[in-house]
C-alpha cells in the first residue's frame, strides 16, 4: 500500500468524521445544556437542507442560502420548544418520545410538500490531487467547517453571558434561578440555537448529501449515539467521539465494506457504553 493511498484514506476519513461532527454539534448543545435528547434533530437538518435548496432554486446564491436555513430552523425550533418541549423538562423519556413524534410529523410533511425525490445541487467543482489519487474538494472543506463550528460553539458557550447562563442552568437548575437566571428563556434560546446548528449542517452539507425527507433518519442515528457516548462534557466529548467513531467507521468502510463500517460504529458504541456506562466524559473535569 503506498503512502498516497494512505493519505487519501486518512483525509477522506477525517472529512467523514467532520461531516458527522457538523451533524452532531446541534444535538450536543441541546443535550449538553438542556438534558434533552432531540430525536427530531435529523428533521431540523432536513428542514435546513430544504430551506437552502428552495432558496437556491429561487436564485439566492448558496452562500446566502445558508443563513436563511439557519434562521428558518431557529424559528421553528423556538416554536417547538415553547409549544411542546417546555412542558416536558425533567422527563427525559417523554421528551424523547415527543420529539420522535415531531420527527415523524416533519418527515411526513416533507414527503407531502417536496415528494420523496428531489434534485440535488451540484457540488462545487474543485479537486485535490494526491499522487495518483484525486479527492473532491468540498468534502475536505468540511474539516475546516467542523473546526469553525466547534470553535463557534465553544466561544458562544464560554465567552458570552448567554453561554454562562445556559451552563449554569443545566449544572444547578435551582441555584441558577435563585441567582436571577430566567431559565425558561435561556432554554428556549438554547433549543433554538441547537436547531439552528442542525439547519446550518443541513444547508452546508447539501452539496454532499442531497435533500430528501428521510435524510434525517440516517444522520441522527449516529449523531445521537455520538452524543450519548460523549457524556456530560458534551462538546469536547462529542468532538473526540465523532473523530474516533466516525473516522474509525470510515477507515473500516474504505478497507472493507460500508456495512462493516456501520458494524464497527455500533459495536464500538456498545463497547464504550459497557466501559463507561454514563459516557466517556463522566469523570472529566472540563468546562464544555
Amino acid at each position: 500500500m503506498d503512502i498516497d493511498y494512505l493519505a487519501t484514506v486518512i483525509l477522506s476519513s477525517l472529512s467523514s468524521a467532520s461531516i458527522l461532527l457538523i451533524a452532531t454539534i446541534g444535538l450536543a448543545v441541546v443535550f449538553g445544556l438542556m438534558g434533552v435528547i432531540n430525536l427530531a434533530h435529523g428533521e431540523f437538518l432536513m428542514i435546513g437542507a430544504y430551506s437552502a435548496l428552495t432558496a437556491t432554486q429561487m436564485g439566492v446564491p448558496f452562500v446566502l442560502a445558508i443563513p436563511i436555513a439557519v434562521a428558518v430552523t431557529m424559528a421553528i425550533g423556538a416554536l417547538v420548544e415553547v409549544l411542546i418541549i417546555k412542558r416536558l423538562y425533567g422527563r427525559i423519556f417523554d421528551t424523547m418520545l415527543a420529539t420522535w413524534g415531531i420527527s415523524i410529523v416533519f418527515y411526513q410533511l416533507a414527503v407531502m410538500i417536496f415528494g420523496t425525490v428531489t434534485p440535488g445541487i451540484g457540488m462545487p467543482q474543485s479537486n485535490i490531487q494526491i499522487g495518483d489519487y484525486s479527492l473532491a474538494g468540498y468534502p475536505l472543506l468540511m474539516i475546516g467547517v467542523a473546526a469553525l463550528m466547534g470553535l463557534f460553539v465553544y466561544f458562544l458557550m464560554t465567552r458570552t453571558v448567554y453561554g454562562m447562563k445556559a451552563r449554569a442552568s443545566i449544572q444547578q437548575p435551582e441555584m441558577a434561578q435563585a441567582i436571577g437566571i430566567e431559565s425558561t428563556r435561556v432554554n428556549t434560546l438554547t433549543f433554538s440555537i441547537g436547531c439552528g446548528l442542525a439547519g446550518f449542517a443541513g444547508a452546508v452539507l447539501l452539496p454532499i448529501v442531497p435533500a430528501t425527507p428521510s435524510m434525517g433518519f440516517s444522520f441522527v442515528i449516529k449523531a445521537f449515539l455520538t452524543v450519548v457516548v460523549a457524556g456530560p462534557v458534551t462538546l469536547t466529548g462529542s468532538v473526540l467521539t465523532a473523530i474516533g467513531l466516525g473516522g474509525g467507521a470510515s477507515i473500516t468502510a474504505s478497507f472493507l465494506t460500508s456495512v462493516a463500517g456501520d458494524i464497527f460504529f455500533f459495536l464500538i458504541t456498545a463497547a464504550l457504553l459497557w466501559l463507561y456506562p454514563l459516557g466517556i466524559s463522566a469523570k472529566w473535569r472540563r468546562k464544555l
Binding site: M96, F266, L267, T269, A270, L273, W274, L278
Partner: peptide
Amino acid sequence: YARMGALQSTILSYTFTLL
C-alpha cells in the same frame, strides 16, 4: 450488569435495532 444509566440503556437497545 454494566449498570448503565437509564438513557444509555435505552440508547444501546436502539443501537442494537439499528445495527
